[in-house]
C-alpha cells in the first residue's frame, strides 16, 4: 500500500482546530449570557443553538448554502464587500464544523458553569473583586473540566463532520477534502486500502483524544481536591 496524499490530515486538523476555537469563544460567551439573563424568547434562542444537534447534517449544509452561497444574503455581502467566497472553500468547511460542534460546546460549558457554586462568586464579590476577574480566576478554572470536555467533543465533531461539509465545501482535492470525505470518495472509487488508511488514522486520533482527556481528568482530580 502506498502512502496517500496527506493533505486531508492537515486540512482536517486545521478545520477542526479553527472550528473548535470559534465554538469555544461563542459557546462560552453564549452559555455565560444565557446563564445570567432572563429575557423573552430565551427558550427559542436556546433551541436554535441546539438545533444542529437534532438535524441531519445535510439540512445544516443546505441552510449554510442558502446563507453563504453566492446568491445567499451573507455570501453575496462577503463577496461584494470583501471578495471572500465561502462555498467550495476550506473556510466553508470550518463554518460547517463550527455550526455542528457549537451545540456540544454550549451544552458542556453551560453544565460546567451551573456546577460552580454561586457562593464562590459571592465570596469573591465581598472581597471587592471585579466580575471579569471573578470569571477568569474563579468561575472559569472551576468550570474548566467541563469546558475541556466540550473542547474535546467539539474537536472530535469537527474532525468527523461529513454531510454539511460536503454540501457547502464540495469535493476539491487539496482544498476541501477532509478525512471523512477522503474515506467516502476513496471507497467509492474502489481504493479500499486508502480508505482503510484514513479510517485507522481517524480512529487513532479519536482514541488518543479520549485517552488524554480521561488521563488529564484523573490527574487533576487527584491534584485538586474538592471541599
Amino acid at each position: 500500500m502506498t502512502v496517500p496524499d496527506l493533505s486531508p490530515l492537515t486540512l482536517s486538523l486545521r478545520v477542526a482546530l479553527l472550528s473548535t476555537v470559534l465554538a469555544a469563544v461563542t459557546g462560552i460567551a453564549l452559555a455565560r449570557f444565557m446563564g445570567r439573563r432572563e429575557f423573552p424568547g430565551k427558550s427559542a434562542a436556546e433551541a436554535l443553538i441546539l438545533l444542529p444537534l437534532v438535524l441531519p447534517p445535510t439540512v445544516v449544509g443546505f441552510g449554510l448554502i442558502m446563507l453563504f452561497g453566492v446568491n445567499g444574503p451573507i455570501g453575496r455581502l462577503l463577496e461584494d464587500w470583501f471578495g471572500i467566497r465561502i462555498v467550495f472553500t476550506w473556510v466553508g468547511a470550518v463554518i460547517a464544523s463550527f455550526i455542528v460542534s457549537l451545540p456540544l460546546m454550549y451544552q458542556s460549558v453551560q453544565a460546567a458553569f451551573e456546577k460552580v457554586d454561586p457562593r464562590w462568586e459571592n465570596v469573591a464579590r465581598t472581597m471587592g473583586v471585579s466580575e471579569w476577574r471573578i470569571f477568569r480566576k474563579v468561575t472559569f478554572p472551576l468550570a474548566w473540566p467541563g469546558i475541556l470536555a466540550g473542547l474535546v467533543l467539539s474537536f472530535a465533531r469537527g474532525l468527523g463532520e461529513f454531510g454539511a461539509t460536503l454540501m457547502i465545501a464540495g469535493f476539491i482535492p487539496g482544498e476541501t477534502v477532509t478525512i471523512p470525505l477522503a474515506i467516502y470518495f476513496s471507497y467509492e472509487a474502489g481504493r479500499t486500502g486508502e480508505a482503510m488508511f484514513w479510517v485507522v488514522l481517524i480512529t487513532l486520533l479519536g482514541l488518543a483524544a479520549i485517552t488524554w482527556l480521561n488521563g488529564w481528568r484523573r490527574k487533576t482530580s487527584r491534584r485538586r481536591g474538592r471541599e
Partner: peptide
C-alpha cells in the same frame, strides 16, 4: 450598592474556600 463596594467581610457557612487556590491565594485574592 454593588457587593464589591460594601466592604463587608462574610464568612459563609462551610467556609466556601476556593478549592483550586492555596490558603495564601484564598486570603490574598482581593
Amino acid at each position: 450598592l454593588r457587593i464589591q463596594e460594601r466592604r463587608v467581610g462574610y464568612l459563609f457557612q462551610d467556609y466556601a474556600l476556593f478549592p483550586h487556590m492555596t490558603v495564601r491565594e484564598n486570603i490574598l485574592f482581593g
